[in-house]
Amino acid sequence: MKEIVIISGKGGTGKTSITASFAMLAGAEAVVADCDVDAADMHLLMQPNSVKEESFYSGQLAVIDQDKCIQCGQCAQVCRFDAISVHDDCHVVNPVSCDGCGYCPRVCPADAIKMEERKAGSWYISETKANNRMVHAALDIGAENSGKLVAKVKNEAKALAKQQNVRYILVDGSPGIGCPVQSSLSGANFVVLVTESTLSGLHDLQRVYALVKKFRIKAGCIINKADLNEMVHEQILSFLAMENIHHIADIPFDRTFTDALVAGKTVVELESSLVAQQVKRAWEIIKDLNQSV
């Protein structure tokens, strides 16, 4: 079983469209995990039918028991997140500001503050139109993605993959360079970096690869919108060569991605298009690379 993670430092590079295409091509050979929980969009292309749904808890939240509270204000004094304020003569916690550090219950003389698990969202197991299963999650508004949620989604996907004895786990990775993307990468066999031929694309590729390197995972790169700028394209290629990253494919700047998206389809479903052919070839290359890993 190979765990393949698709990431891109920057948004809008086509990462999710490409991951969904791979999920279509792999069909029943894969279990899909959408770890891009901040912008969990893959379900829009995979038309999932959820077969399981559960609430997800992450971090903690201070809760003040008003029956016990003596309104002394010590909690507000120690709080570095300005999360405790007075409303109608009562000290209350603002859940958006509370960081869950757990300091206030330790100083409360009336034992009126409890730390509770914070509901951060829900996660699902669904059946998709590609005849495979997908694990995905939706965050509540203002809730923060965390390594824990990503680990949960991946663990569920792994358990499913083992149970169904499939070849691949396809992970749509988290954006940025923080804790969630580190958790997306942890335990992976192969990383597909999706970038675009723009200065921002190159810049963010370099930032995110610094992380991949730390985990010593073999990587390949797909350059989307490859023909937008020749000079930047050259710069990306020399970066890949220098870092020994396999250059998997160039995909031209093309409306097919958007057209497919608007139709609620993955690009590989628009079979006659050039882009579909290129994405298909890319998947074949990734499969080959993963045989030798």
Binding site: G147, K148, A151, K152
Partner: peptide, 8 residues
Amino acid sequence: IENEAHGA
């Protein structure tokens, strides 16, 4: 460790 949001 599954219950820890950060610092695993």
